[in-house]
Amino acid sequence: MIAFTVRRLLASIPVLFVSTLLVFLIVASSVDPLAPLRARNPPIPQTTIRAEAVRLGLNHSLPQRYWDWLTGLVLHGNWGTSVSSGYDIGQRLISSFFVTFRLVILAILLSLILAIAVGVLTAVRQYSRLDYAATAIGFLFLSLPTFVFAILLKSWAIEFNQTVRPNGPPIIATLFEASPNPPTSFLGKIGDSAGHLLLPTIVLALVSYASWSRFQRASMLEVLNSDYIRLARAKGLSRSRVLLRHALRNALIPLSTQVALDTAGLLGGAVITETIFEWHGMGYMFIQAIDNYDLYPLLAWLVLASTLVIVFNLIADLLYAVLDPRIRLA
C-alpha cells in the first residue's frame, strides 16, 4: 500500500506541473495587471508604472517568468509577489485554507451522518411514506442552487435576529467567519464560532446530503437484496445485527469513495458559499485574485487546490482497498 501511495504521488507531479503551466500561460498572457494603474485619472507617471512592472516581473518573457516562479517555489518556498503590496501569499494561503477547512469538515460530517441515516432508513422502509417524503425532499435539495438557499437562509436569519434580539448583536451571524471583536472567554469564542458556522455549514451540507442520501439508499438496497444478507438472516441473527454489521458495512464502501472525491470538490469549490457569507477562505482568496488580476496568489491557490484533489483521490482509492478485502491495489 505504501508503494502504491508513493507511486501515485509521484505520478501526480507531472499533473500539477501541467495544470500550473496551463493556467499561468492562460492568465499571464491575457491579463495585464497594470491595466487599472494605466487607466487611472489623473495618470500615473511612467516611471512608477515601469517600477511596478519590474516588481511584478513583467519585463521577462512568459516561459522565464514561469520558470522563475517554479524554482522560487520549489527551492525557496517563495510564492511570488502580489499586485497588492504587503500581501504575504504563503501565509494567506495557509490561513485561508484553515478557514475553509473547518467549514467543509463540519459540513461533511453533518451531511454524512444525515445521509447515512436517511439512506438506511429509506432503504429498509422502501416505498413507505417516509421513503417518498425523503425522496421528494432530496429532489428539492438537489434542485436548489446553493446561492438561492444561502440567500434565503441569510434573510431568515436576519429576521430571526431582529425578532429575538432587535437591538443587540446578531445571534445567528450572517457574515464573516468570526466577529470583528470576538469574546475572549473560551466558551464565548466557541459560541461565536458556532454562530458564524451555522448558516454556511447548513448550506454546504445540503447539496452533499441530497446526492449522498440517494446514493446510500441505492447502495443499501442493492446490498439488502444480496444473498449473503439472506444467509445472515437464515443464521438467526437479529435484524439490527444483520443491518448494521452486515449490510451497512458493505453498503458504505461505495459511499466512502464518493465522499472522498466530493470533499476534494468542496474544498476547492465552496466559492459561492464563502462569497455570500463573506468568509475569508480559499474561495475568497480565489475571487480576489481574479478580480485584481493577481497572478501569483491565483497560482498559489491552484497549487493547493490541485494538491487537495490529488490527495483526496488517493484517499478514495486507499479507502476502497482498506474497506474491501477483495481489492488489491495494483
Binding site: V15, S19, V23, I26, V27, S30, V31, L261, A264, G265, G268, G269, V271, I272, F286, I287, I290, L298, A305, S306, V309, N313
Partner: peptide
C-alpha cells in the same frame, strides 16, 4: 478524469473571465 476532478466553477471562472474579455 483530470477534467472531472477539477471543480467546474473554478475553471469556468478562470477561463471565462480572462479570455472572454478579449
Amino acid at each position: 478524469d483530470l477534467i472531472l476532478t477539477i471543480p467546474a466553477i473554478v475553471v469556468a471562472i478562470i477561463v471565462s473571465d480572462k479570455l472572454s474579455a478579449s
